[in-house]
Amino acid sequence: MTNEQIANDKSQRAPSPFVNFHLQFVIFVEMVRKQLIVMTRYPVDFVTSFVQIFFMILLFTFATIMFEPRGATEMSGSMTSRTGGVMMYGFVLFMFASDTLWTIGYNIREEQYQGTLESLYLTPASKFASLVSRVTMIVVWTGLLSVAAVVFVQLFLGRLPFQNVGLGALLLVFTLSGMFGIGFAFAAYTLLVKESAQTTANLLQFTIMIVCGMFFPFHALPDVLQSIARLVPLSYAVDAFRSTLMGYPPGFPELASIETEIVIVVAFGILMPIIGYWLYQRAERHARVTGSLAEF
């Protein structure tokens, strides 16, 4: 048999290597479906994720109330709507950021450990689809949690400001896209450093929580931290997102004019995934040179 005959013979048995977009999309859907099935096999995790959100919100709401003049709010009741807006919208972004970092890293570790990462690499399925399917689940999942959190706050703790929804949604899309870029980069980092990635994820979460002013306005930060905050694109995303939804009250946005912030957020949303994926490909190549795809 000649090579050509073999190739012809093969084309009948093995699928075409020249995959088209439609096929890749089907695979992507299958990957998301698989993640969903796996998720339903952790029912306790599913329930606790929702329940803990309420505890977190209550925790911060009560903390807020401690700092409001007596009489401004009732003990069991609401906080002022601006404080609520700053906190809640920051909280939503924090959930996305935290989940992206944590889940992607954790996911890849788990697959390295189970050996399924190698199994994935044995197939012709796109590695990009695999990465994106992981973050897609995060968007869906965290999106649900965010909606639940916002509804909870609206119902029980007082009305949140809710303006410029279109621009707010657009900013969210670019912010999420940028966060996925960070997620890709973090996946790359996990491939390289393995277990220590989780410690880093932990530290990073707390750092961005403070530096990106997730739970408080930036002017509360000491000068040094404010200067650092201005170097991090995610800070602008947080600032622009919540200022827009709050309808630009006096003093907001805090870091730059809204036009400048939109430019930064859009650039972040476009460039970061490219950089992140480039880093992932490099890490993947490194893993294939050193044989660490399966190491654990």
Binding site: P15, P17, I37, V38, Y42, Q114, A294
Partner: peptide, 19 residues
């Protein structure tokens, strides 16, 4: 190449435990 090969690596790894 990946499409042309069916491969079983050493050990019982490479499966999703929760599926």
């Amino acid at each position: 190449i990946r499409a042309s090969i069916g491969c079983m690596l050493m050990g019982d790894r490479g499966l999703y435990w929760k599926l």
